[in-house]
Amino acid sequence: MLQIKNLHASIQDEKQKSKVILRGINLNIKPGEVHAIMGPNGSGKSTLANILAGRAGYDISQGEIIFDEKNIFTLAPEERAALGLFLAFQYPVEIPGVNNMYFLKAALNSLRKQRGLNELDAMDFLTLIKNKIKEVCLNESFLHRAVNEGFSGGEKKRNEVLQMLMLEPRLAILDETDSGLDIDALQTVAKGVNSLRSENRSFIIVTHYQRLLDYIVPDVVHVMVKGKIIKTGGKELALELEAKGYGWLEEQVVVS
């Protein structure tokens, strides 16, 4: 479903100096698989997630991103969304003045339109969202508020999961969706992901901690350090990391 080949990326810092973030990432995700990407702070995990979703501002010097046999490299974020890519943001943006429900309806209908489906009318949409919002344990009053404005950390992440449930992506990237969550919220997020798991839907779970992976059991675990995937394994790798930390792997990077 998704293939990332030898991806190199850098950004310009405040002093206009180029800083290399990704140094040759290779990933191959098949339909139905859940991949976890773990690694210490500053290893480039969030950069990778943002580049996949189409955020501007990165200088990509080499590599390819193939989604469903299509190179999505030049596509705008909304075109990637229409293909079925979804990024659950690490820091969901507060947008004062934009009503949460209006936004969700506009987003869903825009995707449906781009996919050649008919737009949902107000009644159908309302029925749908009232069901979905229960799944993420948010009160319906959140629909009438501005997007993420004044939401707590946990409420923002639940709102991300609500959007994911509504938009039903084919590939969802969760960028540290577990950070700052209490155990109830963590389980809600996991429940949301697990309810969407299917043969032709894939997930990339970016996280620091093994905790989330107790609830969302991954097929593959990658360890990313300094812009490179240095180790790939099964779900047991996450447990090993939890016990030993990242230090021993980082040493290996230095040695090699």
């Binding site: 979703a53 189409g54 955020r55 501007a56 705008a76 974020p77 909304e78 990637r80 969304a81 229409a82 979804f86 990024l87 943001f89 969901p92 943006v93 947008i95 004062p96 003045g97 934009v98 936004f103 506009a106 987003a107 869903l108 825009s110 995707l111 781009q114 501005a146 959007q163 938009l167």
Partner: peptide, 22 residues
């Protein structure tokens, strides 16, 4: 905010309209 709206499928023009109206 613009990227957030676009990542959810709204095109650039529509997103700008929404943000200016907001």
């Amino acid at each position: 905010a613009l990227f957030y709206l676009r990542a959810r499928g709204l095109d650039e023009k529509e997103s700008m309209k929404l943000l200016t109206a907001a």
